[in-house]
Amino acid sequence: MSIQHFRVALIPFFAAFCLPVFAHPETLVKVKDAEDQLGARVGYIELDLNSGKILESFRPEERFPMMSTFKVLLCGAVLSRVDAGQEQLGRRIHYSQNDLVEYSPVTEKHLTDGMTVRELCSAAITMSDNTAANLLLTTIGGPKELTAFLHNMGDHVTRLDRWEPELNEAIPNDERDTTMPAAMATTLRKLLTGELLTLASRQQLIDWMEADKVAGPLLRSALPAGWFIADKSGAGERGSRGIIAALGPDGKPSRIVVIYTTGSQATMDERNRQIAEIGASLIKHW
């Protein structure tokens, strides 16, 4: 067993022997301040990774656009098919120029040779490549099948209805392509620590998230040296922004954090800054 596999296998073990965790309302004060600064709703939840206990939450059962955070769930569904012998990570998928959609920095470079399922998941999570996500959605049967996968996990809230990039439209009061912070946090925890996926697939999923290259201005910008984070960000229309993450000190994750916002007129930089400040408060009061 590799060191990384050992780390993920012992996530519940280490967490069980940690000192009790206590909620700190100071972080919620910052979440509410972010709402004021952005002029928009902000949803927040913080779960203990081992027990699933909610440590703090704000608007945990209000719907927010998922945006690209759905790509972690998508690759979880792909990995479940791999575990069941219905898919192979090494299978190569070929596609054409007509398949390319807006923001496809990886797939646009491989029109000639195609990409493997493993490479597509890596591109979808680490670079948020939209064509990679659409190609992977095709392998599982489309958005409705991802929703069905989530329902089978016990998540009857999260739903995907459309493809990239239309799913980022974020129309107010439109339930399409949305989740709730509580539902997303619980589902992410199941994917990373539950028995739904094999140990190898859980490790692969967290490795992809740990290698995320496009979430630097968010929670990662607030992390002290030595902290662990595996995350996936999302951005959408109407001032929408979000991030889902597993993080913790001492090089291992111990909490799940989900943050979503929508309806702001603020710039992307300002949305990023507010999420980073929430992260800084979380870490300060850990």
Rank of each mutant, 00 (worst) to 15 (best):
P25F: 12
T27G: 04
V29N: 10
Q37S: 09
A40C: 10
A40P: 03
G43V: 01
G43H: 00
G43E: 02
E46P: 02
L49D: 04
L49N: 05
L55N: 12
P60C: 15
P60H: 12
P60E: 07
R63Q: 11
P65K: 04
S68V: 01
S68W: 01
F70D: 03
L74K: 00
G76D: 02
L79Q: 03
L79G: 02
S80T: 11
L89Y: 14
H94F: 08
N98P: 07
E102R: 06
Y103V: 09
Y103E: 04
S104T: 11
T107G: 05
T107C: 13
H110F: 12
L111K: 07
L111F: 06
T112G: 13
M115G: 04
T116A: 14
V117L: 14
R118K: 14
E119Y: 04
E119P: 01
T126D: 09
M127C: 08
M127R: 12
S128E: 00
N130A: 02
T131V: 15
T131P: 04
T131G: 12
N134M: 01
L137F: 14
I140S: 08
I140V: 09
G142D: 13
P143A: 08
K144G: 09
E145G: 11
L146G: 04
L150G: 09
L150H: 05
G154V: 04
T158V: 04
R162E: 05
I171S: 14
P172N: 08
P172D: 06
D174A: 05
R176S: 11
R176G: 09
D177G: 01
T178I: 04
P181C: 12
A182W: 06
A183P: 09
M184Y: 11
T186E: 15
T186P: 12
R189V: 07
R189E: 12
T193M: 12
G194L: 10
E195L: 04
E195Q: 14
L196C: 13
T198K: 09
L199H: 13
I206W: 07
D207W: 14
D207V: 10
M209P: 00
A211S: 07
A211Q: 14
A215Q: 05
G216P: 06
L219I: 12
L223Q: 05
P224R: 10
W227G: 01
W227N: 00
K232E: 01
A235D: 03
A235H: 03
G236R: 02
E237I: 07
R238F: 12
G239K: 00
S240N: 05
R241W: 02
G242V: 01
I244L: 13
A245D: 00
A245N: 00
P249W: 05
K252G: 10
S254W: 07
R255Y: 02
I256K: 00
I256F: 10
I256D: 01
T262M: 11
T262I: 06
T262F: 07
G263L: 13
G263K: 14
G263I: 04
A266D: 11
R271W: 04
N272E: 12
Q274R: 10
I275G: 02
I278E: 02
A280R: 13
